[in-house]
């Protein structure tokens, strides 16, 4: 009888990616059986008044480059979903936040993290995109 494979809860710390922003930084990606969690850290920019603001587009998704399958964002913790914004109070504020997506498969993957373009024209180019994030199983830690 074939052995039923056990889904491993895998964690990648500071996963390598080919192209993307330094701020926010992708700190950790956790792949669980029921969801995928992406943890990010953001430090407010000094160029903006009082550090500016952040929000996440509701249609943000992860994309498996090999299959083209999109994994939708299901919820966000620590960051409001656009059009609501989190306004910083100073240029030295920071925000840790987690985004939750439909579960990725338990295998080696290269994914894109895509926040779709613009709710309003001024948002253009400010979206949080990361391309070709490498999630090799052998680089992963296993959750207890």
């Amino acid at each position: 009888m074939a052995k039923k494979s056990v889904f491993k809860k895998l964690i990648w710390q500071k996963p390598a990616f080919q192209k993307g922003r330094k701020n926010p930084s992708i700190l950790r990606i956790t792949v669980r059986e029921n969801e995928t969690q992406v943890d990010l850290g953001y430090s407010s920019f000094t160029i903006y008044i009082n550090g500016g603001w952040i929000r996440i587009h509701p249609d943000t998704y992860l994309e498996d480059i090999e299959t083209g399958i999109h994994y939708k964002m299901t919820r966000a913790d620590g960051i409001p979903i656009a059009p609501t914004q989190l306004h910083f109070k100073t240029k030295t504020d920071w925000q840790y936040f987690s985004l939750f997506f439909e579960p990725l498969p338990n295998k080696d993957l290269i994914i894109n993290f895509i926040e779709p373009n613009i709710l309003v024209p001024s948002d253009n180019g400010k979206n949080f995109d990361f391309y070709r994030i490498k999630l090799n199983i052998e680089d992963a830690l296993e959750e207890y």
């Binding site: 964690i11 943890d39 830690l141 959750e143 207890y144």
Partner: peptide, 8 residues
């Protein structure tokens, strides 16, 4: 933030 226990 968000400590996670590891099998390690």
């Amino acid at each position: 933030y968000d400590p996670v226990l590891l099998k390690k």
